[in-house]
């Protein structure tokens, strides 16, 4: 909803400071998102494989990977030979 010609977010921005931890959280997400998407660019990977490439804990990789799955950036591409870990690849969004 525009307030006159002014976007309402600008009105709130005049009154409200964005906390530093919110900015840091965004910065971190953008960074790890780039790393995951870059790693998956060439080949499909499992969570442990991604963890090794990106050098981040597996639980953290899973959390961000599942977020990216939800947002439509990645998709599942089968399971490994031991039926333990799924492979994930970049989603072809046309």
């Amino acid at each position: 909803m525009s307030n006159g010609n002014k976007k309402t977010v600008l009105i709130l921005k005049e009154k409200r400071q964005v906390p530093q931890k919110v900015k840091d959280n965004l910065k971190y997400f953008v960074k790890i998102k780039k790393e995951i998407l870059k790693a998956l660019k060439d080949k499909k990977m499992t969570v442990p494989e991604l963890s090794e490439v990106i050098n981040k804990p597996k639980d953290e990789i899973l959390y961000y990977l599942m977020s990216l799955l939800k947002y439509g950036f990645v998709e599942v591409d089968g399971i490994d030979d031991m039926d333990e870990y799924f492979y994930y690849k970049l989603k072809d969004n046309g």
């Binding site: 909803m1 525009s2 307030n3 976007k7 309402t8 977010v9 600008l10 009105i11 709130l12 921005k13 409200r16 964005v18 919110v22 900015k23 959280n25 965004l26």
Partner: peptide, 23 residues
Amino acid sequence: DIENCTLCGACERACPTHCIDFT
């Protein structure tokens, strides 16, 4: 979620019905 919003305004720009109202 205003506590975690960076107030970048991207949502407001993307909204086709202009229903986002930060006021």
